[in-house]
Structures are given as C-alpha cells and as structure tokens.
Design a protein around this nucleic acid. Structure first.
Length: 601
RNA sequence: GGCCCCUUCGUCUAGCGGUCAGGACGGGAGCCUCUCACGCUCCAGACAGGAGUUCGAUUCUCCUAGGGGUCACCA
C-alpha cells in the first residue's frame, strides 16, 4: 500500500499491540463532562485493534445461545451442525494465524472470529456512525436512538464512531454538534470519542493504517487490486459514455483488474474485485427480510483512495468488523451498500453482522427529509423549546410501533423496543404530532425540570425571570396551552415586561367605549383584596349591575392588562401580574383610549 | 435508464385468512366556559389496480401502476 506520502509513517501495529495499559483508560462512563468538548483529544493510542481477550474462551459454556434479539435463535443446534462448525472454526483460525504470521503482526483475537457467529455473541455491540458534516440530522438521531435502545435493552455496548473520511466537509465543529445533540437526547455512548474504549480509535481518519492493512490482505488474497486511472480519466469516460449512449449507466471496466498490464508507478486506488457472475449476495435483514443483489449488478468499487482514505463501504465494513459490531442499524438508503460490505466481510473470512435497515423519514413531498421542508437539525428543536424526551418519543414512533401506544416513557421504550416493531415504509415527518407530544410531556413533567428551560426561553426574548413561585405559577398556566416552552415563553412574555403594548384591533374592539368600566376596575384593583376569587366576585357583580354577561367585562379588562384578547384565565392572570402593575396597565390602557379618541371626537 | 426497496384514513400507524378494518395527530360539530387551551362526546376519512391460491383475502403469490432509494476517489 504505497500511496505517496503514506510510505513514511509505516509503523504498523506492533507498537500499539503491546501497550495495552491504556485500554482501560477513559472507560468510566457517567463522566459527562469528560466526553463533551474535546473532540477526540483523548484517544491516545488505541491502535491495538487486535487485542487479546482471553475471557472470550470462556464463552462457550454458559454464554452460548442466550442472545440478543431472540428472533432467529433456534435453541440447541444439532450435533451435525456443531461438528461442522468446529471444523470451520479450526480452519478459519488456522487461516488467521497464518495470516498474522505473514503480516508479521500480533495474533488476531479469537473473539474476533466469534463475532457475528450466533452462538458467541454474548452481548450485542451496536454503533452509530455519523459523518460530521453539519448538524445532527433528525434521521441520524433516530438511527442513533434505535441503536442505543437495542444496545441498552440487552445490556450491550453502544459505540459512537465518527466517519470523518470526507476531509472536505468534515469539521470539528460538526463533531461537537453531534456530541451536543446526542447528549441532549440522552443517548450516551459506551465507547467512542470522549470515553475511549478497547476498539479505538473511533475517528476513521485515525484508523488509516487499519484500512491499509485490510486492503493489502484483500489484494494479496485476490479480492482486490490496484487501479491506476485518474479521477479525471474516469469522469471523461463517464461523460463519453453518457454522450454516446444517452444513458446514465456507466460502469467502469478497469484495465488493471486482471493484472494484464504491468502496474505502473504512480497514485492508485484499490478496487474491490467483484466476481463476474450472477451469484446473488443475500442477507436476512431484520426489518426487510430477505434482500439480495447480484454480483453483476455491482462493479469494482473503490475501497481506498490514493491518499489511503477509505470510501464509505470499505471503511464501514472494516470498522464494523474490527470493532466487533453485531448489529448494524442504519437508514434504508444503505440497503444497496450492504451486499458490498458483506462481500468485504466474507473476503476477509468473517460472517457479517446482522443488519436492520430503517425506513427513511420523509418530507411532506415524500422525498428524503431535507432542510427545505422544515427543521431537520436536532439542536434546532432544542432551541425551539422542545423537550428532549418528546423528540425521543416521537422519533421512536416514526417507523416503529407497538400496537396503539403513542406515549412512551424511556423505560417503556427500553422495555418494548425491538426490530420487529419496525415497519418497512418510509414515514412523513409530522410536526403537528410532535407538537402534541411535546405538549403532553410538558404537562406531565415536573415543574422543576421545566423551569430552567422556560427561563432560558424567556432569556432569549430578553426577559429575566427567577425560579420562584410566581414564575412557576405562570409556567403552570402555559404548559397546558402551548406546545413548546418557546411558545410558552413568548405567550407569557407580558407577565415579565414592564407595561404592555396593546394590540390595535383588540384595543379598538374591547377598550373603546368602556372607559367607565376601566376606571372602576382601576379603583377596585388599587384598593380591595387582590386575590382571584374576590376579583372575580367584583367583576361578576359589575357585570350583573350593568346587565351584561361576564365576558363583556372580562374581555376589556383582559385587553387592558395583557394587551390582547387571549390569555390564561383572567383572575389568575391578574394576581400574577400583581396589583401595582395591574393598576399601571389599566391606567396605560385609559391613556391609550384617550389617544384614540381625542376629546371632542 | 440499470439495480434495490416500498404501497391501510391527509399524516403516523394497528392488523399477521373470517374484524362494522382499530387507535393517534390533524380537521369538523358540540359540551364545558371570562378569551385561549385542557378535558369530554360525536362526525368525516384508508386497504393503489388486476389476476390468481382459498369456502373466504387488507392479510399469501404473480403482474401492472405509483413512490422512494442507489448507481461518486459523499457518507
């Protein structure tokens, strides 16, 4: 593997394989602060992706068979099958050892061999592998959630891996955005940036030598080859094909596939050597069931770029293999990639993990949800005052269901989540339902949990409120009549401001002509007890005296003290505004009226 | 265009051969009521089409149509 420039830093993995001491470093979970902030500063030297885990040998006895998803696990296997399996194991182990020797590196672990075989996966290992090219997308968040749920449900491991191989678009800022969003949603990871782990590093750009090693192996075993055409050459060919045939189905036939021409010097990519037959590559998707794609329908895709950076299919497959991932749950836009990755696993002598492809989240146009059609960034929902659990609840119900249940606590999600509850059809993002759920969770959430968020939203409006009884009482009035805390803050703003702007239309309709009422009210507010019940009594009496319904007097008062025709119940509102401010506002309303109707008009 | 996948009310979905096709969001009507909201009651609203299999198909099979995804040195 000699891409220019990669030559020099060749210190393969020996060094790393020995210093196992730092394996345990940074594994403490629960230190939230540790994993924020420093985007990958701490995964010192986890190069020993070939770690010996002797305890694995003890697996056979008690751990076999009690597994993961329970969907496809047959109880006992026949002696026939077991024997066959042992034979396979011996053969494959021998192969691995031989390999290790020829590579001159540490022995592969036994555990790696067992990974993916259904009787050794004691605990599932799942991963979320975002590419940090922006905010965390709502679809990515759901993928993360489902992986997290499954891992947690079965006491497995949730790994966060950063697929930052798109050097042009990946940024540290995006990495931080991903952390922030996952943390906000409460999706904590056991391995990955900030927490370390035995399978690091967890940034793909720090695993380049791993990909190079595996690419070399594939070349040596005839599963891959170096290809020397340039990018420009390719796009020229592609263009020519399009012009010539008018069709957009260009398939590249590499000149170097069969090594006929002697490889020349210069930059090259490594391509996967796709068998040229009609053999289908099939797998049993946990959601979609049997899926397959034929060899001929795939081409010699590029695994490694000239600079040694892997393309998605290769990087993901190698990482899932070396990180011993047991279940890969991701968007169904990857359905087409899966056979290619399976081929990598097989070429490397391993069983692939199980796959669960999640139906996509669609926009109102039924296409892939995009920025155009609404908010797609998780942090945007946070900023818009949604509760993290409301989003989690909603995301969980997007594509997954359990009978008629709509509302799920986190514990219920953990208890009931499973792949077989996932449907196959994509779903349209339904903001109204999210709003309804957010309102629901606001109403059942303890006020002390809501207050900080509420105050934060008020602060965004330039208003300050303390976490006191009054603020809480105000919040209580709004949790049941708004769908987000942002909305609550906006609507409650008049409680926290000095004076209030009277809405033109509201004022004209409700205030004008009610001068006597407002004057009487000002007097009453200033003198009597300022308490909801007695205020209501006074108002009712006033209405009765005037021979009108309560609404006739309540509305003008409402407009006077809140500026608008809509507010929480008037008397509660008055009390919370407070006597002095209420008196002032009624006074201001009277002034407003005077300006509208100059004396003499 | 090739390949892969999908198809129940507007939307999210339940259904896993026999149901008046259920629920939720949203919509409509009403009750409650000082406005708004909550809550409650009620209403409208779906098995894409066509062949099979079957005593019987929303459910199983095939075809058609429609939709989506993917075909990069993006992930």
């Amino acid at each position: 593997m000699a891409s220019a420039g990669a030559e020099g830093d060749e210190p393969l993995s020996e060094s790393g394989a020995l210093d196992r001491a730092d394996d345990l470093e940074g594994r403490d979970r629960g230190e939230d602060s540790a994993r924020t902030g420093d985007a990958g500063g701490d995964h010192v030297d986890h190069r020993h992706h070939f770690r010996l885990r002797d305890e694995v040998l003890g697996v056979e006895g008690d751990e076999r068979g009690r597994l993961g998803d329970g969907r496809d696990r047959g109880e006992g296997e026949s002696g026939e099958r077991a024997r066959h399996r042992s034979a396979t194991i011996v053969r494959a182990l021998a192969g691995r050892i031989l390999h290790a020797l020829t590579l001159g590196r540490s022995l592969p672990t036994v555990s790696r061999f067992f990974a993916g075989s259904d009787w050794a996966m004691t605990k599932p290992r799942l991963r979320f592998a975002p590419s940090p090219t922006g905010y965390l997308h709502i679809g990515g968040a759901r993928t993360a959630l489902f992986n997290w749920l499954y891992a947690r449900k079965y006491q497995g491991t949730f790994v966060l891996r950063i697929e930052d191989t798109d050097r042009a678009r990946s940024t540290d800022e995006s990495v931080r955005a991903v952390f922030e969003a996952l943390e906000w949603l409460g999706l904590d990871w056991d391995e990955g940036p900030g927490v370390g782990g035995e399978y690091g590093p967890y940034f793909q750009t720090e695993r380049l030598e791993v990909y190079r090693d595996y690419a070399e192996r594939l070349i040596r075993t005839g599963h891959a080859y170096k290809s020397y055409e340039t990018k420009e050459e390719l796009s020229r060919l592609r263009e020519a094909h399009k012009q010539g045939s008018g069709r957009d189905d260009f398939r590249y036939e590499s000149r170097w596939r069969d090594g006929r021409e002697p490889p020349r010097e210069g930059p090259f990519v490594v391509r996967f050597k796709m068998p040229k037959d009609e053999q289908p590559v099939g797998f049993d998707d946990l959601v979609y069931g049997q899926v397959s794609k034929r060899h001929v329908d795939m081409d010699d895709w590029i695994m490694l770029r000239p600079d040694g950076i892997p393309t998605y299919n290769f990087g993901a497959a190698v990482d899932d293999l070396t990180m011993e991932i047991t279940h890969v749950a991701r968007g169904d836009d990857h359905l087409n990639n899966t056979p290619m990755q399976i081929l990598v696993f097989r070429a490397l002598g391993h069983d692939p993990p199980k796959f669960a492809h999640l139906p996509m989240i669609l926009g109102p146009d039924k296409k892939k949800l995009s920025k155009r059609t609404g908010s797609v960034s998780v942090t945007e929902y946070r900023d818009n005052g949604y509760l993290p659990h409301a989003l989690v609840n909603f995301l969980a119900r997007m594509g997954w269901s359990r009978g008629d249940q709509e509302v799920f606590t986190r514990a219920e999600l953990l208890e009931h989540f499973d792949w077989n509850g996932i449907g196959k059809a994509g779903g349209v993002w339904n903001k109204e339902k999210l709003d309804w759920l957010d309102n629901y969770w606001m109403r059942v959430s303890p006020p002390e949990a809501l207050m900080p968020l509420f105050m934060g939203q008020l602060a965004r409006l330039g208003l300050t409120a303390g976490d006191d009884e009054r603020s809480r009482a105000i919040l209580r009035l709004y949790v049941e009549r708004t769908s987000t805390l942002k909305e609550a803050a906006e609507q409650a703003a008049f409680f926290f401001s000095d004076g209030v702007a009277i809405d033109e239309k509201a004022g004209e309709k409700q205030l004008l002509g009610n001068r006597p009422l407002l004057e009487a009210a000002r007097e009453r507010f200033a003198s009597g007890t300022f308490e909801a019940l007695s205020l209501e009594e006074w108002t009712k009496a006033h209405a009765e005296k005037a021979g009108v319904k309560l609404g006739k007097v309540a509305q003008p008062l409402r407009v006077a003290v809140t500026g608008n025709t809509v507010s929480p119940p008037l008397f509660d509102t008055l009390v919370l505004i407070g006597r002095d401010e209420a008196v002032r506002r009624v006074g201001a309303a009277l002034e407003w009226m005077s300006e509208k109707t100059p004396p003499g008009a």
